[in-house]
């Protein structure tokens, strides 16, 4: 469980959003949607302590970020990574154990086994020795999900996990997300493809330089909220058929 209170973030005096308050429940997959530049990734980075905030705080079930840091897994956007780096699939997944190992300890047999098991869960156990640039986009994303598995985190934050990946990988990742949800973890997914919102998420946060709406998908994913966050045109396209059917 995670509560954001009165959060204000600005880049060089231009506020991204001000006084944002939002709540993420445990045992739910919460999607964050909004147009480009709405502040979705910024919100996530603020929660993770990766950027400076002007004011506000994030409460992790009564604890601070420092106290729960080890228990948060973050699957970032793949475009920010150097794929030529000399690292193979298994070693990449192993980096998920670095946080709990702490300084001066190296991953041993137990950690290697955990990394292998995680790769098995995402169906990539045959790829352990591959250099990461020799994977498809979907396979690479599954490797990062495997790393999140070995982190044994309670809170999982994924930034646009389904961008540029194949259906097969998307399905496998969704299966893992559902398992995590059923295990009572808190899941936050920044998402861009509005078509699958109802299928994938239990709860939804609609953003555009602030929170437009939050709550269960069936209450929040409405023509009105989409119109307020995006545009009337998009809202019409997405909801025209539904309303046509009911009318």
């Amino acid at each position: 469980m995670l509560t954001v209170k009165n959060l204000t973030v600005a880049y060089a005096d231009t506020p991204v959003f001000a006084d944002v308050a939002v709540h993420f429940n445990a045992g739910k997959i919460t999607g964050i949607i909004g147009p480009n530049g709405a502040g979705k990734s910024t919100l996530i980075k603020a929660i993770l302590g990766l950027i400076k905030v002007q004011s506000g705080a994030v409460d992790f079930s009564g604890k601070t970020l420092k106290e729960v840091q080890q228990a948060i897994a973050y699957v970032e956007q793949r475009k920010d990574l150097d794929l030529t780096f000399p690292i193979n699939v298994l070693d990449l997944v192993l980096t998920g154990t670095y946080g709990r190992l702490g300084l001066l300890k190296s991953p041993g047999k137990k950690e290697r086994q955990a990394a292998y098991d995680a790769l098995e869960q995402v169906g990539l156990e045959a790829f352990t020795k591959r250099q990461i640039s020799q994977l498809s986009g979907g396979q690479l994303q599954r490797v990062f999900v495997a790393r999140a598995i070995v982190q044994q985190a309670d809170i999982m934050i994924l930034d646009e996990p389904f961008v540029g990946i194949d259906m097969k990988s998307e399905q496998e990742i969704m299966t893992i997300l559902n398992q995590w949800r059923d295990a009572g973890k808190t899941l936050i997914v920044v998402h861009h493809d509005l078509n699958k919102v109802s299928n994938y998420f239990d709860e939804l946060v609609v953003m555009n330089h602030g929170i437009i709406a939050e709550g269960p998908v069936e209450e929040v994913y409405t023509a009105r909220n989409i119109e307020r966050a995006f545009s009337a045109d998009l809202s019409n396209v997405l909801f025209a058929t539904k309303e046509g059917a009911s009318a």
Binding site: L48, G49, L50, K66, Q69, Q70, I72, Y74, E76, D80, L81, D82, F85, I87, L92, T95, Y98, G99, L101, L103, L104, S106, P107, Q151
Partner: peptide, 22 residues
Amino acid sequence: VLFYKELLITSFDNTFAKTYGL
């Protein structure tokens, strides 16, 4: 030798290293 892990992860994925508190 002592900071191999930390040198690897900060060179490869600095953001990730920050999120786990390094």
